[in-house]
Amino acid sequence: MMVVKKLIEDRLSVDIISMSPLSGGDINDVYMLDTSAGQFIIKSNYREMFPNMLEREAKGLKQLGKSGVTTPEVIDHFEHDELQVLILQYFEEERANKEFWMYFAQDLSNLHQSSHTFFGLDYDNYIGSLQQANEFKSSWEQFFIENRIKPLIKKAFDNKLLSESHLNSFEGFFTVFSELIPVEPPSLLHGDLWSGNLLCSAGQKPVFIDPAVYFGHREADLAMTQMFGGFDSAFLNFYNDCFPLEKGWQNRISIHNLYPNLVHLILFGRSYLSGIENVIKRFTRKN
Score class of each variant (00 low, 15 high):
residue 240 N to L: 06
residue 17 I to M: 04
residue 227 M to I: 15
residue 189 L to G: 01
residue 208 F to D: 04
residue 18 S to A: 15
residue 111 L to T: 02
residue 127 I to G: 09
residue 127 I to S: 07
residue 200 C to I: 12
residue 51 P to H: 12
residue 259 Y to I: 10
residue 246 E to L: 04
residue 277 E to M: 05
residue 123 Y to H: 15
residue 8 I to Y: 00
residue 82 E to G: 02
residue 131 Q to Y: 13
residue 70 T to Q: 08
residue 84 Q to W: 07
residue 78 F to Y: 14
residue 159 N to C: 08
residue 67 S to I: 09
residue 230 G to A: 07
residue 234 A to V: 14
residue 130 L to H: 10
residue 34 D to C: 07
residue 61 L to P: 05
residue 140 W to P: 00
residue 23 S to I: 13
residue 194 W to S: 05
residue 68 G to S: 06
residue 242 C to Q: 15
residue 113 Q to N: 15
residue 132 Q to K: 12
residue 153 I to N: 01
residue 66 K to M: 05
residue 39 Q to A: 12
residue 18 S to R: 07
residue 97 N to I: 09
residue 136 F to L: 14
residue 56 R to N: 10
residue 280 I to L: 11
residue 121 L to Q: 06
residue 52 N to I: 04
residue 91 F to W: 08
residue 280 I to Y: 02
residue 275 G to P: 04
residue 241 D to Q: 13
residue 31 Y to P: 00
residue 119 F to A: 13
residue 4 V to A: 01
residue 116 H to G: 02
residue 164 E to I: 13
residue 168 N to P: 00
residue 59 K to H: 08
residue 32 M to R: 15
residue 255 I to D: 03
residue 255 I to H: 05
residue 267 L to G: 06
residue 29 D to H: 13
residue 154 K to D: 09
residue 224 M to S: 03
residue 79 E to L: 08
residue 138 S to K: 15
residue 249 W to H: 01
residue 158 D to K: 11
residue 235 F to H: 07
residue 5 K to S: 00
residue 115 S to M: 05
residue 57 E to K: 03
residue 209 I to A: 06
residue 84 Q to C: 08
residue 40 F to G: 02
residue 76 D to K: 12
residue 172 G to H: 05
residue 8 I to A: 04
residue 281 K to R: 11
